[in-house]
Simulated assay, not measured.
Amino acid sequence: MENITVSSHFNLTMFVNIGHYRYLAFVFCLLLYSFIIFANLIIILVISRERALHEPMYIFIALLSINSLYGSTGFFPRFLMDLLSDVHLISRPACFTQIYIIYTYASYEMTILGIIAYDRYVAVCHALHYYRRMNSKKVIKLATAAWLFPAFGILILISLSARLPLCGNEIQKIFCANWNIVKLSCVTTDVNNIYGLILTIATVFFPLFYVLYTYLRILIICWRSSAEFKGKVFQSCLPHIISFVIYSTTGFCDIALSRYDIEKINPFLAVTLALEFVVIPPALNPLVYGLKLPEIRKHISRTLFMV
Rank of each mutant, 00 (worst) to 15 (best):
residue 1 M to P: 14
residue 6 V to W: 03
residue 8 S to F: 03
residue 11 N to T: 08
residue 12 L to Y: 10
residue 16 V to H: 07
residue 17 N to Q: 15
residue 21 Y to F: 07
residue 22 R to P: 08
residue 23 Y to W: 15
residue 23 Y to A: 07
residue 25 A to H: 04
residue 26 F to G: 09
residue 31 L to F: 07
residue 34 S to Y: 01
residue 34 S to K: 02
residue 37 I to C: 00
residue 39 A to D: 12
residue 39 A to I: 08
residue 40 N to A: 00
residue 41 L to V: 04
residue 42 I to F: 00
residue 49 R to E: 15
residue 49 R to S: 13
residue 54 H to P: 02
residue 54 H to L: 11
residue 56 P to F: 11
residue 58 Y to W: 10
residue 60 F to T: 02
residue 62 A to Q: 08
residue 64 L to W: 01
residue 65 S to C: 09
residue 72 S to W: 06
residue 73 T to N: 13
residue 74 G to V: 01
residue 75 F to D: 00
residue 80 L to Q: 01
residue 82 D to E: 14
residue 82 D to F: 13
residue 85 S to I: 02
residue 85 S to F: 05
residue 86 D to K: 05
residue 88 H to R: 11
residue 90 I to F: 02
residue 92 R to M: 10
residue 93 P to Q: 05
residue 95 C to D: 04
residue 99 I to Y: 03
residue 103 Y to Q: 14
residue 104 T to Q: 09
residue 104 T to H: 08
residue 107 S to L: 01
residue 117 A to E: 02
residue 119 D to T: 13
residue 127 A to C: 06
residue 129 H to L: 15
residue 130 Y to R: 14
residue 131 Y to E: 15
residue 134 M to V: 11
residue 134 M to Y: 02
residue 134 M to F: 06
residue 134 M to D: 03
residue 136 S to W: 10
residue 142 L to V: 11
residue 142 L to F: 13
residue 143 A to G: 14
residue 145 A to V: 09
residue 145 A to S: 04
residue 147 W to V: 12
residue 148 L to A: 12
residue 149 F to W: 07
residue 150 P to R: 01
residue 150 P to L: 05
residue 150 P to V: 05
residue 158 I to P: 04
residue 160 L to F: 13
residue 168 G to Y: 00
residue 170 E to D: 15
residue 171 I to R: 02
residue 174 I to A: 01
residue 174 I to H: 01
residue 176 C to G: 08
residue 176 C to R: 06
residue 179 W to A: 02
residue 180 N to Q: 12
residue 182 V to R: 00
residue 182 V to W: 00
residue 182 V to P: 01
residue 185 S to T: 03
residue 188 T to V: 05
residue 188 T to C: 08
residue 188 T to F: 06
residue 192 N to R: 06
residue 193 N to S: 13
residue 194 I to P: 01
residue 198 I to D: 06
residue 200 T to N: 11
residue 204 V to E: 08
residue 204 V to S: 04
residue 204 V to Q: 07
residue 206 F to D: 10
residue 211 V to T: 09
residue 212 L to Y: 07
residue 212 L to C: 13
residue 214 T to M: 11
residue 218 I to H: 03
residue 221 I to A: 15
residue 222 C to M: 13
residue 224 R to S: 10
residue 224 R to H: 10
residue 225 S to F: 08
residue 228 E to A: 11
residue 231 G to M: 07
residue 231 G to A: 11
residue 234 F to Q: 10
residue 235 Q to Y: 04
residue 236 S to Q: 15
residue 241 I to Q: 11
residue 244 F to R: 00
residue 244 F to W: 06
residue 247 Y to H: 07
residue 251 G to M: 07
residue 253 C to N: 12
residue 256 A to K: 00
residue 256 A to V: 01
residue 258 S to D: 00
residue 261 D to A: 01
residue 264 K to I: 02
residue 266 N to Q: 06
residue 268 F to I: 15
residue 270 A to N: 04
residue 270 A to H: 02
residue 271 V to L: 10
residue 271 V to E: 11
residue 272 T to M: 04
residue 272 T to I: 02
residue 274 A to G: 08
residue 275 L to N: 13
residue 277 F to Q: 11
residue 277 F to P: 06
residue 286 P to K: 02
residue 288 V to H: 09
residue 288 V to T: 12
residue 292 K to Q: 14
residue 292 K to Y: 13
residue 296 I to M: 03
residue 298 K to L: 12
residue 299 H to F: 05
residue 299 H to P: 00
residue 300 I to T: 04
residue 302 R to H: 12
residue 303 T to R: 09
residue 303 T to V: 12
residue 306 M to G: 08
